[in-house]
Lab assay of single mutants.
Amino acid sequence: RADKQHVLDMLFSAFEKHQYYNLKDLVDITKQPVVYLKEILKEIGVQNVKGIHKNTWELKPEYR
């Protein structure tokens, strides 16, 4: 399990490339446990629960 700041850096870097990611792809990118990753994502992102981007994560507007 990596340092939180290191995980945040990896996530922000990923979100610079694409606006939406599913959790599986973010786990592959960060190599972090799902529960730990979700904890961090809830602080900086929102999970889309409907629409064409259903079940994906994106950054909260203040982090874009």
Rank of each mutant, 00 (worst) to 15 (best):
E58F: 13
D9Q: 14
L11P: 00
S13H: 10
E58G: 14
L11K: 00
P61E: 15
Y20Q: 11
D9F: 03
V27C: 12
L41F: 02
E58L: 05
N55H: 07
K50R: 11
F12L: 13
S13W: 07
V35L: 11
G45K: 03
E43T: 09
R64K: 11
K54Q: 09
P61S: 14
L41H: 01
D25P: 00
E39R: 10
H18P: 01
E62I: 11
L41R: 00
D28A: 12
D3C: 05
P33S: 07
L41E: 00
H18R: 14
L26K: 00
Y21I: 10
H18T: 07
D9S: 11
L11V: 11
K42F: 05
I29A: 05
K31R: 11
Y20M: 07
E16T: 07
F12T: 07
H6K: 15
P61G: 12
E62A: 13
Y21V: 12
K31Q: 14
G45S: 10
K24F: 09
A2K: 15
D3W: 05
D25Y: 04
Y21K: 05
K24R: 14
K38V: 14
F15E: 01
K38C: 10
Y21F: 07
A14Y: 05
T30Q: 01
K42I: 08
Y20C: 10
Q19S: 13
K60W: 01
L59G: 02
K42S: 11
K50W: 06
M10R: 06
K4Q: 08
N55E: 11
F15W: 07
T30H: 00
G45H: 00
E39T: 10
K31F: 02
V27F: 03
L37C: 04
D28P: 02
L37P: 01
D25K: 08
V35R: 14
L11T: 00
Y36M: 09
F15K: 01
K50T: 12
E43W: 02
I40K: 03
L41D: 00
G51N: 07
H18M: 08
L37A: 01
Y21M: 10
Y36R: 10
N22M: 11
E58T: 13
Q47Y: 11
V27L: 11
R64C: 10
I40N: 03
N55Y: 09
L26D: 00
L26T: 00
N55M: 07
H6Q: 15
A14E: 04
Q19T: 13
V49Y: 13
V35E: 15
I29E: 06
F15P: 00
W57C: 03
T56N: 07
D3I: 13
K24Y: 10
H6D: 12
Q5L: 06
H6A: 15
K24C: 08
Y21S: 03
F12M: 15
I44C: 08
K4P: 03
V27R: 11
E62D: 08
H6L: 15
A2D: 06
H6G: 15
L11C: 05
L8W: 06
Q47C: 13
Q19R: 15
R1M: 06
R1T: 15
K17S: 06
G51T: 06
E16M: 10
H53S: 10
L23R: 00
I29S: 03
K4L: 05
K4N: 07
P61A: 10
F15Y: 13
R64S: 14
